[in-house]
Design a protein around this nucleic acid. Structure first.
Lengths: 249, 249
DNA sequence: GCAAGTGTTATTGTATGACAAATAAAAAAC
DNA sequence: GTTTTTTATTTGTCATACAATAACACTTGC
C-alpha cells in the first residue's frame, strides 16, 4: 500500500478495516453488501473507479476487477463516460451464493425465512415429483444414504448436514440442470432454520418421518405421493419457525 | 493491438475473429462459451492468463477482467500458482442471462426445450398460485394490460412480446424476490418456442383463452384455479412443441 | 430563436511493466 | 525415509499512459 494519494480532507467517507485474502474479492464483497443493503439503489450511479480507489485506498486495477465480479453477478452495468450503474433488481443473480448471502444479511431474519419457505413451497414439491419420476438407482442410493445419516445423527450439526445432503440429493435426482441453482435457497432456508432453533429440534422425530415418506415415494416412483410428502415437510418447517419467538434477535 | 509477442509456431491454437464492443466482455463470452461447450470440464485447469493473452492477442489486463466476470458467474476459481480451475457444475449460475445463453447454444434445441418446459412445470403453477394470493392491484393491472396487448397483437413479434410481459408480470405479482431469477427460464422457454413455430401459432386463440383463465383466477385470488390454469397452459405449449418436426434443424 | 454540427471533458477501456504473495514441486538436509 | 529449504510458476496488486466513448456545453448557420 504505497498509495500516496490518500484522501486528505473531511471527504474521506469510509473506514478501511483492511482485510484478509484477495483484495478484489474483499472489495467486491464490500461494495456488493452496500448495494444489497440499499445504499445504492437500482438506477443509481456508483462513485467512479478512481473514487473507490481513494475510498478504500486501493489501485484502480483492484477496483475494476471487483466491479467486473459484481457486473458478472448482474448487479452493475458500466459504460464509458457514464460510470457504473446499479442494474434493476430483476437483473440481479439473487441465486448466486454471494449475492444471496449479502441479501440475507441485509434484510431481517424473519422475512428472509418467510421468503425462502415460500419459494421452497413453490418449487420443492415439483422437484420431489420430478425426482420420483426420473431418479436413477445411483441417485436413489444417495438419497437413502442421506436418510440413513439423518436417522443416525448424534449431534445437531450432523443432522443439519444430513438434511442438506438429503435435499441436495433429491434436487440432483430431478435431473434438470435448470433447477439446480435453486439448491442454494434450500441450503439457506435450512441454515436459517438451524439458526432459529439453534438447539436440538424438538420435532426431530416428526421431521425424520416426513423425510422417510418422501424417500418411499421416490422409491415407488409415485410423483403425487412425493409432492404431497414434500408439502407436509415444508408445513412442518413452517410450524417450527412459527413456534420460535418473533422477537428473537 | 501492439502486442509483439504473437505466437510464432504451430502452437497457435485458435482463430481470433476480433470483435465489436468491449474486449473483456467479448473475451468472457468466448471463454464462457468454450466452458459451456465442454471444452474445459469441471475440475480442469484453464490456460494461464498470459497464455490467453497470446491466444487472443490481448493484454493480461483484459484477460483478468474477463476471468473475474466468469468467476463472478460461478464458472471459475483462481488461485496463485495453480491457475483458474473450472468449478463443479452445481456452482455455475445457470440462471445468469449469459450463462444460460451459452448453455443453450451448447446443447441441442430439443433437449433445451424439454428442460425449460420441465422447469416451468415445476415452478410456474406455484408462481401463479402465489400471484393469485399476493398480487397488488397495480400488479393485477400490469397483468391485465399484458393480456390486452396479447389479444390485440397483430404480428407474431408483438404477440411474443406480450406473452413475455404476461409471464414477467405474473412472476412479479408473486412478490417473492427469490423467484425472480427464474424469469429467465420462462423467457428462454418462450423464445425457444417462438423459434420452433417461427410462424403464426395455429393454436393462438387457444393460448389466449388459457392465459385469460389465469387472469381470471388471479382476479378472483383463487390459488388453485390459477395453478390449474397455468398447468393447462404449459400442457398446451408442450403440445405445440410436440407438433413440430423433431428433425427440424 | 433554434437546429445541427462541433468540440470539450469525464469516465471507462486497454496496454505495459514491475513487483508481491502464494504455493506446488523440486531439491537439500537430516 | 522424512523433514526442511529452495525454487519456480501463477495469480494478485500497483502505477502510468493513452484510447474510446458519449454526455454536455458551445458554436455556427439559418
Amino acid at each position: 500500500m504505497t498509495n500516496k494519494k490518500l484522501l486528505d480532507g473531511p471527504l474521506s467517507v469510509k473506514p478501511r478495516p483492511r482485510p484478509t485474502g484477495n483484495l478484489h474479492d474483499w472489495l467486491a464483497r464490500s461494495i456488493g453488501e452496500r448495494i444489497l443493503a440499499g445504499e445504492f439503489v437500482p438506477g443509481a450511479l456508483l462513485p467512479n473507479e478512481a473514487a473507490w480507489g481513494r475510498i478504500y485506498d486501493v489501485s484502480r486495477t483492484a477496483v475494476r476487477e471487483a466491479i467486473k465480479t459484481l457486473t458478472g453477478k448482474g448487479l452493475l452495468l458500466s459504460r464509458p463516460k457514464i460510470g457504473s450503474r446499479v442494474e434493476p433488481r430483476d437483473r440481479w443473480n439473487l441465486l448466486d451464493r454471494d449475492v444471496l448471502t449479502w441479501h440475507r444479511s441485509a434484510i431481517d431474519r424473519r422475512s428472509f425465512a418467510a421468503s425462502t419457505q415460500e419459494a421452497r413451497r413453490v418449487i420443492e414439491p415439483g422437484v420431489a415429483a420430478l425426482a420420483a419420476r426420473k431418479r436413477t438407482v445411483e441417485q436413489l442410493d444417495r438419497l437413502i444414504a442421506a436418510m440413513e445419516a439423518m436417522r443416525n445423527a448424534k449431534s445437531v450439526q450432523v443432522n443439519v448436514a444430513a438434511d442438506l445432503e438429503f435435499h441436495e440429493a433429491l434436487l440432483q435426482a430431478a435431473n434438470n440442470d435448470l433447477l439446480m441453482p435453486f439448491g442454494i435457497i434450500i441450503e439457506q432456508a435450512l441454515r436459517n432454520l438451524f439458526d432459529y432453533t439453534s438447539q436440538r429440534n424438538p420435532r426431530l422425530s416428526i421431521a425424520i418421518k416426513l423425510h422417510e415418506k418422501i424417500v418411499h415415494a421416490v422409491i415407488d416412483q409415485d410423483m403425487e405421493a412425493a409432492r404431497q410428502a414434500m408439502l407436509r415437510l415444508i408445513d412442518d418447517t413452517d410450524a417450527v419457525i412459527a413456534a420460535t419467538s418473533p422477537l428473537k434477535k
